[in-house]
């Protein structure tokens, strides 16, 4: 067996016939913390969604824990943190109820939750600093706290691999720090992380490798590139448009 946790070989994917990923290969080994960077529309989110099987590959292959993704069934080993909580439908749900959904991959759908499940939920909430909000409706939380709820949900399943899609986009500083802390604990326990980010912020010291996706291909795979231009300013606002006209530097590093 190999220690490859995630492996994408010559992956091609797109939406409605428009190619987004063009011949991408990527390997993440156990214990690594890999950041996928890139401008909006570069294909970085599509890459992780393809890894998780949410976007089908039109060519190439994905393996998870050494097993072809198509035949992979041990989903309790994977924790997924989406970009944001879906738009609320009005039916309230408490923070603990949302986080408890993270136990389903481990427990199966028929077994009722037991003590181990409740303990895992409480521990995950403590890890992200939301233990005191467990009984509050998620809709009353700030965006950053909702994001922390989602990482708690992923952690509650005690996964070996965390896949995060822009976890800190639009998240306040307190939540970003809480996020970085939870991630640090996770990697200290031997966990593997694959995360998509627009900018790294407080997560930067945790990253062991950076992969830059540019126009559907991998433009850089190695050390975390230094922020260039005004990106380097510690508190710059991300209000400028992204796209092909992105200034040379970070995204075009090769």
């Amino acid at each position: 067996m190999t220690s490859d946790v995630v492996s994408v070989t010559n992956g091609v994917a797109g939406y409605d016939g428009r190619p987004v990923l063009r011949d991408v290969s990527l390997t993440v080994t156990a214990g690594e913390v890999v950041a996928i960077l890139g401008a909006n529309g570069s294909g970085k989110s599509t890459l992780v969604r393809a890894v998780l099987g949410l976007v089908p590959l039109s060519a190439g292959s994905v393996t998870l824990f050494g097993r072809p993704a198509r035949r992979f069934r041990q989903w309790h080993r994977v924790g997924y943190v989406p970009q944001r909580l879906g738009a609320g439908s009005g039916v309230p749900a408490t923070v603990a109820e949302v986080v408890a959904a993270g136990r389903l991959a481990r427990r199966g759908i028929l077994r009722p939750p037991g003590r181990a499940d409740r303990e895992a939920v409480a521990e995950a909430l403590r890890a992200v600093g939301l233990a005191d909000r467990a009984k509050d409706p998620v809709a009353t939380l700030s965006g950053g706290q909702q994001q922390r709820t989602l990482i708690a949900r992923a952690l509650a399943g005690r996964p070996e691999l965390l896949v995060l899609d822009e976890p800190t986009a639009g998240v306040d500083a307190v939540s970003q720090e809480a996020f970085a802390g939870a991630l640090r604990d996770f990697t200290a326990g031997g966990g593997t992380v694959l995360l998509v980010a627009h900018e790294l912020g407080p997560l930067r010291p945790l990253i062991s490798r950076a992969v830059v996706v540019h126009q559907g291909v991998i433009a850089h795979d190695g050390a975390v590139p230094d922020p260039a231009g005004h990106h380097a300013a510690p508190d710059h606002d991300h209000v400028h448009p992204h796209g092909p006209e992105e200034p040379a530097g970070l995204w075009s590093a090769r």
Binding site: L52, G53, L54, V78, R103, L104, I109, R153
Partner: peptide
């Protein structure tokens, strides 16, 4: 009542339910 956790997960966040390996379509 029996499938509440699974049905809640699917109705609340279908993609997450999929990544959890739940039989989303069957549910």
């Amino acid at each position: 009542l029996l499938l509440r956790p699974a049905l809640f997960a699917v109705c609340h966040d279908e993609e997450y339910a999929r990544v959890s390996g739940l039989p989303v379509r069957a549910l």
